[in-house]
Simulated scan of single mutants.
Amino acid sequence: MILASLTRAVRTQNWFAVFIEFVIVIAGVVIGFQITAWNEARQDRVRERIYLEQLLIDLQSDAETGRRGVASTERVDAAAQRVLAVLEGDGRSDGTDDAALVASLPYAGYAYLPLANDATYREMISTGALSLVEDIELKRALATYYASAEAGRQWDELLREEQYAYRAAIRGLLTREQFAWARAQGGEAHGEPPGFNRAAFLAEARTRPEIVDSLRSMGAVQQRLRDDSTRLSERADRLAALIRAALGEPVRQQEASE
């Protein structure tokens, strides 16, 4: 309709009408572009919120991973102390029965690596969605968090080597059935280990000084894992608090205390 009106105005050389029709056309185009821009901006904010909410879920998982890591190091250290006490024959071993000894032996060399879940962050980088985050400080905090999590993994192979060394040191001390029973206990003894002969076990184990050496070395490993786990929880809680603030959600007490 506007095009027809404009055509008639040109034919009749009604330049004022031409000008008015031209202004209407331009205004319509500008308004159309503006509406499209507003709609895209609204969609971007929706997408940003979805990604931030997913990051929040990942961070809550990371914080819990860290707390599990701390608890794991405490249990593994306790198991290592029980095995050391028995092998060294000191008074602390008096309360360590066969079940506790067998259950503790494989568990004493366990290493729980506190790994951060970076799946959402990697997706945001690969798809360019990181640009959706408007808060510059939050974007910087995200980069710092995931860079720190990645940097902490440079020691993982060394920690695994310590774990492998301990497993090599205890190889053959337990039968397949005893080892399977011990693994099922998760470091805590329930019932009796199948066919376990304590005297024969001690006679063989005490000919392997590498067991004690490895257990003492694993103590440093557990301290490293404890520190890594603590840092992961604290950093995850702090970043989660920033994201909650960006989302306009209340900060949880756990996050606020960090």
Rank of each mutant, 00 (worst) to 15 (best):
S61W: 00
I211A: 02
E53W: 00
E177Q: 12
L105Y: 03
D228M: 09
S214D: 06
E161L: 08
R224Y: 05
L247K: 14
A240E: 13
E53H: 06
I2E: 11
A168M: 04
P193I: 03
F33E: 09
I57Q: 11
T120E: 09
A189K: 11
A116W: 01
A108R: 01
L3D: 15
Q253Y: 00
V221I: 07
L159K: 01
A203L: 13
G89W: 04
L138T: 00
S72W: 05
L173D: 04
R167P: 04
T144K: 05
E162D: 11
A205C: 12
G195Q: 12
R122G: 15
P194T: 05
G32F: 12
E157P: 08
V10Q: 03
Q81E: 14
H190G: 13
R167H: 06
L130W: 00
Q222K: 03
V76H: 02
A141P: 08
A256N: 11
R208C: 06
G95L: 11
A141H: 04
S229D: 04
A4M: 11
A200R: 14
L158Q: 12
A199Y: 09
R47C: 10
A63L: 00
L105D: 06
V221M: 03
T73I: 05
V46C: 01
Q163Y: 01
E157D: 13
T65L: 07
E134K: 04
T12W: 05
V83C: 07
W15C: 13
G186C: 09
